[in-house]
């Protein structure tokens, strides 16, 4: 069984270097699909094992002038875009090459992934991959898993950012989904949870068609709540110092 898993990982690696395969199936999300419905049907997908680094993003900026600091249109990235780099095409001491790239907007992250023939993961895909700890694909029932994540939240951001990949891989072979940086997802702008979580279940009907703002299930899953809050707090052109991203891909047709 272990050997089979290892082989599957290697196979996925060969198909797309740097990507791990996450299985599809039914997944209970903290963000309901519709009020009262938490089960999401996920297709299998590939997820980058590590967040995108400063070095990788620099290479992208070199090949895509439109996404360089100073040239990127204001509607796609705010004034904080890559502010920690010493120059539009130079990292400098404030941005080590192997650190996850931060201060990038959703538009920029999307453009990077597109340039790799990839895309951003959806929230559900990210949540699925992040539910794992080192040995279990779904560790969310374990209070110790939740507490570890909360412990990271309680340390201030003034500490230096470590390089990617230093923490152990989780059960899917993916690193750093927790404890390093927040990460963009494709539908970050439409998580549709109210910023004031106390008003859950009290939708303003004229504002939201359909069933009103989604309410978050499993309110004790604070790790998720905080991530949703973080992603909802920024517009798509927004950047902030602990928010990076990684890319996802659909498996090649015919791959296992």
């Amino acid at each position: 069984m272990v050997l089979g898993c290892a082989l599957a990982r290697v196979a996925a690696g060969a198909e797309a270097p740097g990507y791990a395969r996450v299985a599809g199936g039914s997944f209970a999300s903290s963000l309901p699909v519709a009020p009262g419905r938490n089960e999401v049907a996920l297709e299998p997908f590939l997820l980058q094992r590590r967040p995108v680094t400063n070095a990788e993003f620099l290479a992208f900026a070199q090949g895509h002038p439109k996404w360089r600091r100073g040239e990127v249109p204001g509607v796609f990235a705010d004034a904080g875009y890559l502010a920690h780099w010493s120059a539009p095409l130079a990292l400098g001491p404030g941005a080590r090459p192997e650190e996850p790239v931060t201060r990038v907007s959703w538009f920029a992250a999307r453009a990077y992934c597109e340039a790799q023939g990839a895309r951003l993961p959806t929230w559900y895909e990210w949540e699925r991959a992040a539910a794992a700890d080192e040995t279990r694909s779904d560790a969310r029932g374990d209070p110790a898993w939740r507490q570890r994540i909360l412990d990271w939240y309680s340390r201030p951001s003034s500490e230096a950012l470590p390089d990617v990949g230093l923490s152990p891989a989780n059960a899917w072979g993916v690193h750093d989904l927790h404890g390093l940086v927040w990460e963009w997802v494709e539908d970050a702008g439409s998580l549709l949870a109210g910023a004031d979580s106390r008003e859950q279940g009290d939708p303003d009907r004229m504002k939201f068609c359909g069933s009103g703002a989604l309410t978050l299930e499993q309110k004790e899953n604070y790790a998720v709540l905080m991530r949703v809050a973080m992603l909802s707090s920024l517009p798509a052109a927004g950047t902030t110092n602990r928010l990076g991203f990684r890319c996802a891909r659909d498996p090649e047709a015919g791959a296992p």
Binding site: D196, E199, S233
Partner: peptide, 28 residues
């Protein structure tokens, strides 16, 4: 340098969330 987004609810405000819905702020 903040890691988290924050907002504010002032109990002296008359209005939705006490200001919380209008003050959700990301770091920086």
């Amino acid at each position: 340098d903040s890691k988290m987004p924050h907002n504010i609810d002032l109990h002296g405000v008359t209005g939705p969330g006490g200001g919380a819905t209008s003050s959700f702020t990301a770091p920086g």
